[in-house]
Design a protein around this nucleic acid. Structure first.
Length: 800
RNA sequence: GCGGGUAUGGUGAAAUAGGCAGACACAAGAGACUUAAAAUCUCUCGGGAGCAAUCCCGUGCCGGUUCAAGUCCGGCUACCCGCACCA
């Protein structure tokens, strides 16, 4: 048979869709498998070849699971709120709804042309009001539980997108969307108290199967540290200056304090600060610096001493100067530090610039040269002198601080609360009403969804307020509590909201009563295997784990963690080895490949091209090689024989079943495909194959190249869909050979190979090895001093 | 600076738990078929020496453990990813 991919691919895609053979059935009395891939943002550009690779892994596993008898849920949907659509809407004066619908239509057709076995009856769209009703519902539940708060704050603001960004969206001081420099702006911000879940998110990592690098990235992102909060008195003022430190045991080495330039103490006691001019000048200078300069370039210490205020070290009563400096951040800890120059390099550098005292309290380094951050004996530290163990000295100091009421042990996180509002149109409206009497009031649950109103002009206002603020009919409303005149919140939720719980909605996508039926959740959750990109490890994954954990604490889902297992694909690079980008002109369009080589070739190649987790350049000739392989498979129907299979071929076949089965589970798709290529080469060498053996072969290949395998199955008279046939089981006894070829080494160097009966006795093997001509020659006149035999692997003679 | 990872032919890459390095492909070269080309099929294909049998070298670098190291240990180097004046 010829491989007429154009004809057979559309034929089988239609059949699969008509008969809905990939539909997941709720509550079936079968083991379940929930395979998940990150749902796409339906951009106008259409599908990227990276999508194909990202989905192909779980696609292959899901197809294998179905054949193994599992009830499989492998869904797809669209994460469709977001800025690119909104910007395109502004540019073309088209409503984002229309653009989104068009793009979803386009994406769906493209996905279908690759033959992915999604359950198309469960498609979700985060911009559908039936969906975002429940996004708003979860938000209100969080509001109800005190996990939502509003605060005026200095925030990351992108002047180009005119939008407030979360910490995560402005990494490196650049806007994640447009890459402009982010500035600090004082704004009204809605926060989700994700920090309250920091420990739960950390602990949850021990209960799931994530690759080490992903686990580590999440641990770093949460950034838990333990230490102590200590109150320092300030001369002449009532307030205490609270600092956070991880090394409270170095308190006797404190020689000055540093507070962030934005620290409220400064304005509060401005009248006592004699050099307010210099302070203001320094603050202005800091404000001018971009985040990039502040964190990347300027490691030189700068600062200004606050004249008129002095700190008092609570453990020894010493007066110490207070500085402002931009190396202390308002956003971490308390925005104030005690400086121990002898044992912290930054404090050391600062002390050198300003000529401050450096007092050693831990022995072991040379504080003339640099700060010593290692362990050692405590000195100059009163009751801590003589301690050599960091843990003990810290514990003792915390005990002392708590006894005297001047400090306490505490925990800090690098992770900050999640800035949750955006001044944009194309997002979920935040369902809150501002009442002059009652304050912030939740929109009643029965009024959800709070729909996005129709707008003529989607552009944000000049001050960066939401386009919704211009719609009086939306803004003006009655307070749900007191019935008085009130105004609606006009900001919308960030892009990440909809994707924070979408995997739950797939389970029950059309439910109008609850976000998903509890029994169905119990059946399907958790997600058994989730594949996606590394770029979503610290945002989407942490956010969605947080939301899911919240829902668990609320008692509405059955598992604390949403994803039992996570994997990540490596990028497909352009043929030139660079990251694909339009500007470089090295983008591969997957649909071009489908047209030219077929979907089966595309699917097979993206998994064959290399290690699944590693970035690999696209190589068109290699892709063609996969096409060649599939053509050779198609032609096997011309080699059919009625003759029974040979024991040799049975052995090869069963070894291949074993290898392919194991490799798919280990995501070693490249070697799984390679072993199928070897098997096909073996058939060509033998000249013929019988129907039974060919059936096994196409079953193994079916998850990778399903259209072709279905067609072959039909051609050789198979009944029903091969995609629903049973996965081959190997016979272990047939994977063991009667004889084995092993190497024989002399002094660790390979000198010959011998054939031995499998599991032969050591003496028998050594006998054969000694008798080998080449081995004898290598030994020559020398004496054998040691004989090593590793069963079925190798013989080594040590000679002198 | 901290954390994670990677390094193997001309290329993408294989190598179970320390046991025949380079499977499977791609590219290249030669040949067959063809009026010709494409496609297909056959052969060669890490480096060096040799007519050859064969021998020597070879998994980023230096050292170690071992009968045996791509694999384990110690010390480097380069690159990639993430975080970063985090107190």
């Amino acid at each position: 048979m010829k491989h007429n991919f154009k004809k057979i691919e559309s034929k089988w895609q239609r059949k699969w869709e008509d008969e809905k053979i990939f539909r997941a059935v709720d509550g079936l009395d079968k083991p379940k498998f929930y395979g998940l891939v990150e749902f796409p943002y339906p951009s106008g550009a259409g599908m990227h070849v990276g999508h194909i690779k990202a989905y192909s892994s779980i696609e292959v596993v899901s197809r294998k699971r179905r054949m193994e008898g599992y009830n499989v849920l492998f869904p797809i949907g669209f994460d469709a709120f977001g800025l690119p659509t909104e910007n395109y809407a502004i540019k073309t004066a088209t409503h984002p709804r229309i653009i989104t619908d068009e793009n979803i239509e386009k994406f769906s057709n493209q996905l279908k042309r690759v033959g992915f076995s999604f359950d198309w009856d469960r498609v979700i769209d985060t911009t559908d009001e039936k969906y975002y009703k429940w996004t708003q519902w979860i938000f209100l539940k969080m509001f109800e539980k005190g996990l939502v708060y509003r605060d005026k704050a200095w925030v990351n603001y992108c002047p180009s997108c005119k939008v407030v960004l979360s910490n995560e969206d402005s990494q490196g001081g650049k806007c994640d969307i447009c890459h402009s420099d982010v500035v600090q702006k004082s704004k009204d911000v809605w926060y989700l108290r994700i920090t309250q879940y920091a420990d739960k998110l950390l602990e949850g990592l021990d209960t799931v199967s994530y690759p080490e690098n992903i686990r580590q990235q999440q641990v770093n992102w949460i950034g838990r540290s333990t230490g102590a909060f200590v109150d320092f008195s300030v001369t002449g003022v009532e307030d205490k200056l609270e600092i956070y430190t991880t090394r409270p045991d170095t308190l006797f080495g404190v020689t000055f304090m540093v507070i962030a330039p934005e620290h409220p103490l400064i304005d509060k006691h401005a009248d006592r600060i004699q050099n307010m001019d210099a302070v203001e000048a320094y603050r202005a200078e800091c404000n001018k610096k971009t985040e990039f300069e502040r964190t990347q370039l300027v490691k030189d210490k700068t600062g200004v001493k606050l004249e008129g205020l002095e700190g008092i070290n609570p453990v020894n009563g010493k007066k110490i100067p207070i500085f402002i400096a931009d190396y202390v951040m308002m956003g971490y800890g308390t925005g104030a530090i005690m400086a121990v120059p002898a044992h912290d390099q930054r404090d050391y550098d600062f002390a050198k610039v300003f000529g401050l005292d450096i007092i050693e309290v831990i022995k072991g380094g040379d504080i003339e040269k640099e700060a010593y951050t290692g362990d050692g004996e405590m000195v100059n530290s009163d009751f801590l002198n003589g301690y050599t163990n960091k843990k003990d000295s810290i514990a003792r100091m915390i005990q002392e601080l708590e006894k005297k009421g001047i400090g306490k042990g505490g925990v800090q996180y690098k992770m900050k609360d999640w800035a949750f509002n955006r001044q944009r149109y194309w997002g979920e409206p935040i369902p809150i009403v501002h009442c002059p009497v009652c304050g912030d009031v939740a929109v009643p649950y029965e009024e959800l969804p709070l729909r996005l109103p129709k707008v003529e002009n989607f552009a944000p206002g000049s001050e960066g307020e939401s386009p919704l603020a211009k719609i009086d009919s939306f803004v003006n409303c009655k307070c749900p509590k007191c019935g008085g005149d009130a105004k609606r919140e006009t900001d919308t939720m960030p892009q990440w909201a909809g994707s924070s719980w979408y995997f739950l909605r797939y389970i029950d996508p059309n439910n109008d009563e609850v976000f998903a039926d509890r029994e169905k959740l119990n059946y399907w959750m958790p997600v058994d295997w989730y594949n996606g990109g590394m770029e979503h490890v610290t945002r989407h994954m942490i956010y969605s784990r947080f939301w899911h954990r919240f829902l668990y604490d609320l008692g509405v889902v059955n598992t604390p963690e949403p994803y039992a297992k996570r994997s990540a694909q490596g990028l497909i690079l352009g043929p030139d080895g660079d990251k694909m980008s339009k500007s470089k002109g090295n983008v591969i369009d997957p649909l071009d490949i489908v047209d030219e080589y077929g979907a089966d070739t595309l699917r097979t190649y993206v998994l064959f091209m290399g290690d699944y987790g590693v970035a690999t350049p696209w190589n068109d000739s290699s892709a063609k090689g996969c096409k060649r392989f599939l053509e050779r498979v198609a032609a096997l129907t011309d080699k059919l024989t009625d003759a029974p299979s040979t024991p040799e071929f049975q052995s090869k076949l069963h070894k291949t079943i074993k290898k392919v089965s194991a490799d798919i589970e280990d995501m070693k798709f490249n070697t799984a495909i390679a072993s199928l290529m070897i098997l096909v080469n073996d058939v060509y060498a033998a000249g013929s194959i019988n129907k039974e053996d060919l059936t096994v072969l196409i079953k193994l290949l079916c998850p990778f190249a399903p259209h072709l395998c279905e067609e072959i199955w039909e051609t050789i008279g198979g009944e029903g869909f091969l995609s629903l046939a049973s996965w081959p089981v190997f016979d272990e006894s047939k994977t063991v050979d009667a004889t084995k070829e092993i190497g024989v080494q002399v002094n660790g160097k390979l000198k010959g190979t011998i054939v031995i009966p499998t599991d032969a006795e050591k003496e028998q093997v050594l006998e054969i090895a000694r008798g080998d001509e080449k081995v004898q020659k290598a030994i020559g006149e020398k004496k054998i001093v040691k004989e090593i035999y590793v069963p079925n692997k190798i013989v080594n003679f040590v000679v002198k």
